[in-house]
């Protein structure tokens, strides 16, 4: 009796939850459908063949991969520090790290100029001591993307480290493994699914980065003009072309995310 009632209850609750779910899906998917419907499919071939498009796409992919690699290299140790070490001001540090996620990217770009620009805090020193100026370089694109995207990776990895059983690391230590070996052979494999997810998020954010990039790195085809910048400028003169470029960006990201899902998230 009670079982039957419970089952009927859960069936009746389903539509109530399905409705907002469908609304959420609509909000996310309808704009994409709009892009696809309005795309000038006839010009697709010509747009894709344009050297500027290929140039922007290659630049976007290489810079976003660089940003992701650097985010892993620097972000994972930082996540480890946040998750494993007890120190004063840790809450403040964590808030600072999340800040780029809520900061308007254009403001982030200005902040980057004030730090690494030719007259910036560190930038002027770089310029005087080494003759290095970052703005308007591909390096600046990578830095802008790193600034905006790295928090996604750090948050994901820190959460994974916090929830992972510390006992495994202790067990490895009693078996004679030093810190680095423990990290490499135990900690890292255990958080691999979250690291993969964090890296994918980080990469996706870097690929779509616009505001910080155009403000800090400028816009020059082949050097700093990534796909989002190309899309924005195309929108100024030929919106149809912008739609095609957006679709290319969409297709590439979708492909990579689906690929990563099979590879990395399957174990999770």
């Amino acid at each position: 009796m009670t079982q039957g009632r419970a089952r009927r209850g859960s069936v009746r609750r389903l539509p109530a939850f399905a409705f907002p779910a469908v609304l959420a899906l609509l909000v996310l998917v309808v704009p994409l459908v709009g892009l696809i419907v309005r795309a000038p499919w006839g010009d697709l071939g010509a747009e894709l063949a344009a050297p500027e498009v290929r140039q922007a796409l290659v630049l976007s992919i290489t810079t976003s991969l660089w940003a992701t690699a650097l985010a892993i290299l620097f972000g994972v140790p930082l996540a480890w520090v946040l998750a494993r070490l007890e120190f004063r001001g840790r809450a403040l540090l964590r808030a600072l790290i999340v800040l780029p996620m809520v900061l308007p990217p254009v403001v982030g770009g200005v902040a980057l100029l004030l730090a690494f620009g030719r007259r910036g805090l560190i930038g002027q020193w770089l310029d005087q001591a080494f003759g290095i100026t970052l703005p308007f370089t591909t390096t600046a694109v990578v830095i802008a993307e790193l600034f905006v995207a790295m928090p996604f990776l750090i948050i994901a990895v820190e959460a994974a480290l916090r929830s992972s059983e510390r006992g495994y690391e202790e067990a490895a230590a009693t078996l004679g493994a030093g810190r680095w070996l423990v990290f490499r052979r135990v900690t890292l494999p255990l958080i691999a699914p979250s690291l993969g997810a964090g890296a994918a998020l980080c990469w996706a954010r870097a690929l779509g980065e616009f505001g910080a990039t155009i403000t800090f790195a400028g816009n020059l085809p082949g050097t700093t003009q990534t796909m989002p910048l190309a899309v924005y400028l195309a929108l100024q003169s030929r919106p149809e072309g912008a739609i095609v470029l957006s679709l290319v960006l969409l297709a590439v990201s979708l492909g990579v995310l689906v690929l990563l899902r099979d590879r990395w998230f399957a174990a999770a």
Partner: peptide, 21 residues
């Protein structure tokens, strides 16, 4: 050979006024 093609004329002014260009 410009180092950057800015999205609008205000951005051109700000790049120069910030000393980047």
């Amino acid at each position: 050979e410009p180092v950057s093609l800015e999205e609008d004329v205000k951005a051109v002014v700000s790049k120069v006024s910030l000393g980047e260009a």
